[in-house]
Simulated assay, not measured.
Amino acid sequence: MERDREDLAAFILRMRSRESLPVRLFEAIEQVPRRLFVPKGIANVYADQSFPLPCGETMPSAARVVSAVAALKVQPDSRILEIGTGSGYATALLGRLGARVVSLDRYRTLVDEARERLSSLGLVNVTLVPEDGSEGYGPGAPYDRILINGAIEAVPRAFLDQMASPGILVCAVGPAEGEQVLTRHHKAGSRFETELLASVRTQALKPGVAAVL
């Protein structure tokens, strides 16, 4: 759609003015049609706002997703774990950037719908699993990069144990209600360093696998 092309161009200009992002990430943004992932009837899919998803979940704005993905500093050989597949938009960007992506979501409905979208884009390096991601996912470890799409009060030890060294984990840390801080955790050997990146507001990460949805 012509409107989408114009909105994408404007979005890329906004992101370039806000952050210094790698060329590979901009290429991934252009290759992944966000329209495929948002609810029907949205005029500007790159608007700086969140959108509703099935199962009571929320899809972050494109700017929020891109900023979180950029913070991971994904390399072409990166093995990535994503917690909270949602619509699959961030998953698609990660699939364009890294070597292997394992993405978990507690809602099978979201996993099935995201799988169809990612398959239509020909992304064969992405594995989607309907699974509780509150303690990571041991079968695919170790991971060079971990992205948690949901707020947590503290990073569980399991995630740090599943990280390769060197490795990076990005997540929002803070209370379920109110403001959180987007943080980047670096692992180097037995050392962990934490960077505070930005204030955010996001849904809390929910434990367990949904019984029905």
Rank of each mutant, 00 (worst) to 15 (best):
D7E: 15
L8K: 01
L13W: 10
M15Q: 08
M15E: 15
E19P: 03
S20G: 10
S20Y: 11
L25S: 02
E27A: 14
E30K: 12
Q31E: 11
V32G: 09
P33S: 03
R34W: 05
R34G: 14
F37E: 06
G41Q: 05
G41F: 03
N44L: 11
V45S: 08
Y46A: 08
Y46C: 07
D48R: 10
S50K: 09
F51P: 13
M59Y: 07
M59I: 04
S61Y: 02
A62F: 00
V66T: 09
V66C: 07
S67V: 14
V69M: 00
A70D: 13
A70K: 13
L72Q: 00
Q75T: 06
Q75W: 07
D77S: 12
S78F: 07
I80L: 14
L81F: 10
E82S: 12
I83E: 02
I83N: 11
G84D: 09
T85Y: 01
G86I: 05
G86F: 07
G86D: 08
Y89M: 08
L93V: 04
L94D: 04
L94H: 05
R96Q: 15
V101D: 08
V102N: 02
L104I: 08
R108D: 14
T109Y: 14
L110V: 06
A114W: 02
R117A: 09
L118R: 08
L118N: 11
S119G: 15
S120P: 04
L121D: 12
G122T: 05
G122H: 09
G122N: 03
L123Q: 02
L128F: 13
V129N: 03
V129G: 00
P130C: 10
E131Q: 15
G136S: 01
A141T: 04
P142Q: 02
Y143L: 02
D144S: 02
D144M: 00
R145P: 02
I146D: 05
I146C: 06
L147P: 00
I148K: 11
I148M: 04
N149H: 06
N149T: 12
G150D: 05
A151F: 06
I152G: 10
A154K: 15
V155D: 04
R157E: 15
A158I: 04
L160N: 01
Q162N: 02
Q162S: 03
Q162K: 05
A164N: 01
P166E: 01
L169F: 04
V173Q: 06
V173D: 09
G174P: 00
E177I: 11
E179F: 15
E179L: 14
Q180V: 12
L182Y: 10
T183L: 10
T183A: 01
R184P: 01
R184I: 06
H186T: 06
H186N: 02
H186M: 06
G189M: 13
S190M: 13
F192T: 07
F192N: 07
E193L: 12
T194W: 00
L196D: 14
S199Y: 12
R201C: 10
R201G: 07
T202Q: 14
Q203P: 02
A204E: 03
L205W: 08
L205C: 09
K206R: 15
K206S: 13
G208T: 00
V209F: 06
A210D: 13
A211M: 13
L213T: 12
